[in-house]
Design a protein around this nucleic acid. Sequence first.
DNA 1: ACCAACATGTAAGTGGTTACATGATTTC
DNA 2: GAAATCATGTAACCACTTACATGTTGGT
Lengths: 215, 215
Amino acid sequence: MAKKKTTVKRKAPAATPPAIPTLGYVILTSLAHHPHTGYELTQLMGPPRNYMWEAKHSQVYPTLQLLAEHGYVTFEDIAQESKPDKKVYEVTERGLEALKEWARKGPTHVPVRDEFSVKMAALRLLPPSEAVAVLNRQIELVEGEIAAINLHLVDFVDRFRLPEPAQSNHRQFCLLSAIRLSRDLKLTAMEAYRKLAGELSRATEPAKASRAQSK
Amino acid sequence: MAKKKTTVKRKAPAATPPAIPTLGYVILTSLAHHPHTGYELTQLMGPPRNYMWEAKHSQVYPTLQLLAEHGYVTFEDIAQESKPDKKVYEVTERGLEALKEWARKGPTHVPVRDEFSVKMAALRLLPPSEAVAVLNRQIELVEGEIAAINLHLVDFVDRFRLPEPAQSNHRQFCLLSAIRLSRDLKLTAMEAYRKLAGELSRATEPAKASRAQSK
DNA sequence: ACCAACATGTAAGTGGTTACATGATTTC
DNA sequence: GAAATCATGTAACCACTTACATGTTGGT
């Protein structure tokens, strides 16, 4: 019957430092660049600018509250005329330290969960012409996203290449590289979609051609 | 004050067809290829073979139950000597239909949530030497993953290039493309990490060099 | 004696989405 | 007068992780 060690000890109080979810670090990374409101952060993490991490406002606001409770950020209430009031958040020293610590420790496992790749594998069950149609629709979608990122990149490069003395420039490389990477990942995916669409078309068109002859 | 339409109507019974979560379609895609046990599916979705979608056994088993309840899969209990009993799952006609329908409809939004890309952006806060160290550790990790996928790809290509009459071959292209894509995405990421590490090194080494001169 | 592989589950908790809720101001 | 932008929140639910739980066989 065995020992049945149903101890249910689970989770020592552990006090502080309290765990920050990844979204918290995403927010801290943005705030380390510049103070923002929850609304602005939500926009940075929603289409079309969700390059590295996306989130809805309903997740952003509570996370900001959590960060504030633990002293990682502070905020200031700003009353505005002709617009609703807002809270502008800023990183604290403590928040910066936590962010740096997080950045240092690794390696970082990025869970793979790509619905369209699964769909690609499933496309073998459809007639090739339908599969090609699905791929083409996806290509269109990704093309648009890539175009948007490219626009933003042009903007970005312009803004920081002009006034800076090469020294402080290299600090921006990190963000620039991350944005470029998000674009390149989409490009890689798009090429794969194109290639598969091409192969599936080539596999069917000869058949069509011979049927056309017998007609 | 306002109208306060706190109706709380929420969710008509809607009867069937019941919603399948994405993991359900992932499982159906695997089963459409070949019958599997929950244990095998878990291995297909865990390291080192989590190419498109990863999941733990604690999520796989309940999802299989759900699929079975709704008639998308059936299973057979297999008693084994010298090993625990197991349940081998198979897709039903209904499951295949649902899978095809899912594959057809799109486009598919793939949420972007790449923790390491965020970290890349945050690396600007660290001294370049530390940032390079973080990047190098990540590069090592991804290199290993890529090597593993390449091994699998060699295997895969061998197996289906030999016995097939070119006709049925092209059905495998879809799966093959998806696996290749997962590798290429990792390659793209790795290149970006390498490039940034290079740039950060170049930005610091001149400084080191000039300090070495004055020494 | 211990660990790895085989095999299947459940419970508790966190992370994330969708929908509910409110309200001012500007633009069509 | 309708929709879009600015602005902030909460509630319910679904997806996913971590930990609990159990048991067999075979290798070191």
